[in-house]
């Protein structure tokens, strides 16, 4: 069992949890993730290691509440435990040797992009962060991001923070104004990562994206996380989750990410749903 040592609500649909997991904390590197299972009858879901503390032996995860498992997770409080928690899985991001980097986060993706920005910043690279949210109420980690970059731009889709537009608008502006990026990292919803990759392609700027595919084991056994990169089949859990955004078949990945859309909808709205029973309890 893995104890929740802290829980914070970041915005109405996003929570942060600090989990006691000393072995994982010791090894975790930016870009890696864990897989957890809340209870005996739960799904295994992947979540990025947003931060880790070797001394205290804790791992931080930031969770957007989107479906069953994340709701069950949200029902847990500080002091409760999670049944299974395995990691660090996936390859660590390769962040050595870059001088000027744009790190872009979309929504909860900011939580996943944060450790990369932090690592680059500590390594001495110049880091511009661009964060996008639907509206100003959803903004998370603003101070944390500010602390690990040279310039933070926060965009909102509806302009409610006074800065209307998508992350790609801000990125384009930075590039056209002469920001000489040798790397762009984009993490967020698939359409956002695709848009960033399309934007940087003509400028020939290396672009790394993080694939949040469906997963089961996270060790290369099920193939559920497969995607096509440069015409080849790759497994996000062992070959990634980072990939070259210019080579990923985003359309296929976007289709595959909808695999359980109908099933989830049905389960969440049926009367005998375990989740609803739990919440109502």
């Amino acid at each position: 069992m893995f104890k929740i040592v802290d829980k914070q609500v970041l915005n109405p649909t996003t929570i942060k949890m600090v989990i006691d997991a000393p072995l994982i904390a010791k090894k975790a590197a930016p870009g890696q993730f864990i897989i957890l299972r809340v209870d005996e009858k739960g799904e295994r879901i992947p979540l990025t290691i947003s931060d880790s503390d070797k001394e205290n032996g804790t791992v931080t995860i930031i969770i957007q509440i989107v479906g069953k498992t994340t709701m069950l997770l949200n029902n847990l409080e500080k002091g409760d435990s999670i049944l299974d928690f395995v990691g660090p899985l996936g390859k660590a991001s390769e962040l050595d040797g870059y001088k000027k980097v744009a790190v872009i986060g979309g929504g909860t993706g900011c939580a996943i992009a944060f450790p990369q920005a932090k690592a680059l910043h500590i390594a001495g690279a110049k880091v511009d962060m661009i964060a996008g949210f639907r509206n100003t109420d959803l903004i998370i980690l603003e101070q944390e991001m500010k602390d690990v970059c040279d310039k933070l731009t926060v965009m909102t889709d509806d302009g409610s923070n006074g800065n209307k537009g998508f992350v790609t608008n801000a990125l384009k502006e930075n590039i056209e104004n002469g920001a000489d990026y040798d790397l762009v990292i984009a993490i967020g919803p698939l359409p956002m990562m695709k848009a960033v990759a399309e934007l940087t392609r003509p400028y020939n700027i290396k672009t790394i994206i993080s694939m949040n595919t469906i997963m089961v084991d996270g060790t290369g056994m099920c193939g559920g996380c497969r995607l096509t990169v440069d015409g080849e089949t790759k497994f996000a859990c062992i070959d990634g989750p980072d990939f070259d955004g210019h080579l990923v078949d985003f359309d296929e990945a976007m289709r595959r990410s909808t695999t359980y859309k109908d099933i989830e909808y049905r389960e969440m709205h049926s009367d005998d749903c375990r989740l609803l029973n739990k919440i109502n309890k």
Binding site: V216, D217, M221, C222, G223, G224, R226, L227, T228, T233, D249, E252, R255, R256, T258, T259
Partner: peptide, 16 residues
């Protein structure tokens, strides 16, 4: 077509 929705490896199908 192996990337279509509904294509499983036997490992994934059986593990689930």
């Amino acid at each position: 077509g192996e990337g279509l929705i509904g294509v499983y490896s036997a490992n994934e199908f059986l593990t689930r």
